[in-house]
Design a protein around this nucleic acid. Structure first.
Length: 883
RNA sequence: AGGCACGUAGCUCAGGGGGAGAGCACUACCCUGACACGGUAGGGGUCACGAGUUCAAAUCUCGUCGUGCCUACCA
């Protein structure tokens, strides 16, 4: 026997680091450079360099790793391409905070020094999340790690920018954009989070110029009044028909502005009169353009009122609101204030209230790109799974607006555009131009804005593979096989990768997109630091081990539903890891290094024929589930099979031959034990890489790493369908006896005698052949099997189809208990039978239901009647004794 | 405002037209030579509510209520 000591419980810490290092050193995460194998590639959703592993990452990367390990074992040439994202605003914020601690800010040290500081920061802390991904067991090819600010990827960014500019798909212009006064940058529409808030609707009087009376406008933002250049009413509004050419006096500033007619104005809202501030509202901007109105910006980029705000200059926008309301009240121009709820935009990075602002920015003309991306999903070039997300994708793509890509921060890809200081020409180029293309002046100044971080992320599936060069990796792995990501970045990222991939590679970036759920706390609440309900994956890893954690995530990852994670759940799956560990411990105690693996000409026991057949079925089912991204199904099938079939039945039954005296049977038993355990390990490896490798390495008869072992398939195992029904019978008899023992409170140490009536020889024979199993598993002393049996007096009986199992309980049987037990069983069957008989007596059912359904119900009723008869006979037997 | 999910055992969920399932929790008995992070057995549900389609509905359709999320410019 194997004498190497194996501890009684699995200790993850000791093994995880060891095997991860081993895999990495052996180069098992790398794809083969030249390979006959079919390619399989996933590019990782690059975590922010500033990031630390959270539950979202843990789930996302666990699922990807399961797929990659599975595909590798299935014989694919797998590349899991890793890397990190420079995360412009987030990273800049982090470094700015660090500067603030030193009493500095980025303007004090200047752009160049600041960027140096960010790089220093990145070198120091950027590897943090990568190491955390490694702890999760992620089998990425780390030799290919990329960063969105790498030279290669930056080249891809410039290339894309120039090409889109040349195609007139990038333009620059003055528009209302979303401005974050805290981050001091423009944001894309997507980067604005809307939140319903309690606010007020202010009714303000604008006195008419040159005539009596006033026009009352309703607004939520009185402070923008300072930038009003008109008041608009609907031309069809009867209240305002006689205002053609009228003018009103802007309160506070006492400026005369026109009343205009525009159909945009909703007559039902407020007073039907709308103040127009073209520089601070996207619709007012449109209306202003249509009517040739001035655009007056009154709020500066820091969120404070500027020189056009007259007496309010220098005030914060919120302070100004209060003051202006007060002043209006004093002037008698405030009609009323109503409470009002409306959705207000906030910066997705710092939650500051967004200021719509007129500003000159760079945009991507998106519709032509979106059309192709819509068509690709329609055609099925990319499949979105679950399919309900395809609808969301179409909805957004169909209503997409131009994408504001310029950001007024420093950390990022600087826009490759130069302004000629001499003639004003804009030169867009891949490399810094020596002179102006128009006037040849050497005085060129590069655009100071950088690109939206998502601009470079959109190129990730091909930029990481070497584009714009024509590389071997691109040819082999593009389009990639799958994209695994959360729905929260479907628009930010997936949609944009689709557009860019189609535009620059002429094909979709991935064949399948698997959208997984969000991880929430056990009550379904989003985890957040402020709520204090975050579960830190790193702590979980420490406490429960990586395998238990990964298995939990997989088991809970049902399609289309969020994951509610609790530590209780993780702890439950740690027990499973331990169960597996102990099954291996048992195997190891019974195997030696000379375990035979030759299967030819062996005679198998029922347990062996059965477990091999089940392995064949389960291997296929797990494979199929993983192919279809049904991680939870795959995981629970593995759990169910290993615990309740492999351990509960097969191992218990195998003990008979392993502990027996038949040397030949013993050898066969060991062989089957070794091969079935090896198969179990392989089936579980994608989910639980560490414990399976640890056991694999200790298990005699295995070679190399389990990572490169072949994933089990149905044809690997000898299938014997008879074994399934035979096993059913033996399990039924065993469970029946156990049930009686349990219900009758027979002490586990007390052996019982059993008499079985099996009218058919086939069953009788099967039971006889398997006496030993029943004796051992149900603690039975003697068993007798006959075609016909007289019910022994002091016996409790369970009915299995036409078979009856009588457990002899002389002196132990409580007659009343047994009657109760029989009545319970009778009641159960009677209930079922009533509904089935109802069906059979229903003419329309007999006429219209498919024949096979009718047959099934008939058979059911027959078998239930049989059982019921026998149960009733048994009950009658006791009742006659009592009388 | 519109859209999309989801209401199944105490909890977390799976199932998706023909016999209500799992894990955890619970109860009883057991330290049986892999495992007490274990074993054996057991209790527990008008499948949110109301209609409809059907021979048959937890499952399909509509409505109601509840929950969650996403999108949106009515100031």
């Amino acid at each position: 026997m194997h004498d190497e000591a194996i501890s009684k419980s699995y200790e993850p810490k000791e093994v995880e680091e060891k095997w991860y290092k081993y895999w990495e050193e052996k180069g098992l995460f790398k794809p083969e450079p030249k390979s006959e194998k079919p390619p399989y590639c996933i590019v990782i959703p690059p975590p922010n360099v500033t990031g630390s592993l959270h539950m979202g990452h843990a789930l996302n990367n666990t699922l990807q790793d399961i797929l990659c390990r599975f595909k590798r074992m299935k014989g694919f040439n797998v590349l899991w391409q890793p890397g990190t994202d420079h995360a412009g605003i987030a990273t800049q914020n982090v470094v700015e905070k660090a500067l603030a601690k030193e009493g500095l800010d980025r303007h004090k040290i200047g752009r160049e020094k600041f960027i140096e500081r960010v790089w220093e920061w990145k070198e120091k802390y950027g590897g943090l999340i990568i190491n955390q991904l490694k702890r999760l067991g992620s089998s990425c090819d780390w030799s290919r790690e990329r960063f969105t600010m790498d030279e290669g990827l930056s080249r891809a960014v410039r290339e894309v920018f120039v090409r889109l500019y040349e195609k007139k798909l990038i333009y620059r212009g003055d528009y209302i954009i979303n401005w974050c006064p805290r981050c001091r940058t423009a944001l894309a529409d997507l980067e604005v989070e809307h939140a319903e808030m309690d606010s007020f609707l202010y009714y303000i009087k604008y006195p008419f110029e040159g005539r009596e009376g006033h026009l009352t406008v309703a607004t939520t933002r009185p402070e923008t009044l300072l930038g009003d250049t008109a008041v608009a009413v609907n031309p069809e509004d009867e209240r305002y028909t006689n205002l053609s050419g009228a003018q009103v006096i802007l309160p506070i500033l006492n400026k005369v502005i026109p009343v205009i007619y525009d159909r945009y104005v909703d007559r039902e809202f407020g007073t039907g009169a709308l103040k127009i501030t073209p520089a601070h509202d996207p619709h007012d901007f449109e209306i202003g353009n249509a009517h040739g109105l001035d655009r007056i910006r009154v709020i500066a980029e820091d969120g404070k009122m500027n020189e056009h705000a007259g007496p309010y200059q220098g005030m914060d926008r919120f302070e100004c609101r209060e003051k202006i309301v007060e002043d209006l009240k004093k002037a008698g121009l405030l009609e009323k204030i109503e409470p009002y709820r409306n959705a207000i935009g906030h910066c997705y990075r710092c939650k500051t209230m967004i200021e719509p602002l007129l500003s000159k920015q760079w945009f991507v003309k998106i519709t032509p790109l979106a059309e192709k991306a819509i068509a690709a999903v329609r055609k099925g070039d990319t499949t979105i799974i679950p399919s309900s997300w395809a609808g969301v994708y179409f909805e957004w793509m169909n209503n997409i607006k131009d994408w504001c890509i310029s950001r007024q921060i420093w950390w990022g890809h600087r826009i490759p555009a130069w302004y000629c200081q001499n003639c004003g020409e804009i030169v867009v180029a891949r490399e810094e131009p020596a002179e102006c293309s128009s006037c040849h002046s050497k005085e060129l100044l590069q655009e100071s804005d950088v690109l939206d971080t998502w601009f470079s992320s959109a190129l990730w599936p091909f930029s990481t593979l070497g584009w714009p060069d024509d590389t071997e990796e691109l040819r082999t792995f593009y389009p990639t096989s799958a994209m695994v990501t959360g729905f929260d970045i479907l628009f930010f990222w997936v949609a944009r990768m689709m557009m860019m991939g189609l535009e620059f590679m002429g094909d979709v970036p991935f064949r399948e997109v698997y959208i997984h759920a969000l991880v929430r706390d056990e009550h379904g609440k989003k985890m957040s630091k402020s709520k204090g309900n975050v579960i830190d994956p790193l702590e979980v890893l420490d406490e429960y081990g990586t395998d238990a954690f990964r298995f939990t995530l997989a088991a809970l990852a049902a399609q289309g539903r969020d994951i509610k994670l609790s530590e209780e759940r993780i702890s439950g799956y740690r027990h499973f890891v331990n169960k597996l560990w102990n099954s291996a411990r048992f195997a190891m105690m019974n195997l030696d290094d000379s375990v035979e693996i030759e299967a030819q000409g062996r005679e198998y026991t029922l347990a062996e024929r059965w477990i091999l057949t089940r392995l064949s079925e389960v291997s296929e089912q797990i494979s199929t589930a993983l192919e279809e991204y049904r991680f939870n199904d795959a995981a629970s099938m593995g759990y169910q099979f290993v615990w309740h079939e492999f351990c509960d039945w097969y191992l218990e039954m195998a003990k008979l031959s392993l502990y027996g005296n038949n040397e030949e049977a013993k050898r066969t038993s060991r062989m089957v034990l070794q091969s079935t355990l090896a198969a179990v390990l392989k089936l579980l490896h994608p989910f639980m890489p560490f414990v399976t490798e640890e056991i694999w390495q200790r298990l005699p008869g295995t070679e190399g790493s389990i990572m490169v072992a072949k994933f089990p398939q149905a044809s690997d195992f000898q299938v014997d369908l008879d074994a399934l029904s035979e096993m059913d019978l033996i399990m039924g008899v065993t469970t029946g006896i156990r049930n009686i023992r349990g219900e009758m409170n027979i002490s586990p140490s007390k052996k019982v005698d059993v008499v079985i009536e099996a009218p058919e020889e086939r069953d009788a024979d099967r039971i006889r052949k398997n006496f030993a199993y029943i004796q051992n598993l149900a603690k039975v002393d003697s068993i007798a099997v006959e075609h016909r049996v007289q019910k022994p007096e002091a016996s409790a009986t369970c009915v299995l189809g036409h078979n009856q199992v009588h457990v002899l309980l002389k002196g132990l049987l409580d007659f009343e208990e047994e009657k109760k037990r029989l009545k319970k069983a009778i009641g159960k069957i009677e209930k079922d039978m009533a509904s089935a008989q109802n069906k059979l007596s229903n003419k329309r059912f007999m006429e219209r239901a498919p024949a096979e359904v009718v047959e099934k119900v008939k058979a059911k009723v027959d078998s239930m009647r049989l059982q019921l008869d026998k149960l009733n006979q048994n009950l009658a037997f006791f009742e006659s004794i009592n009388d």
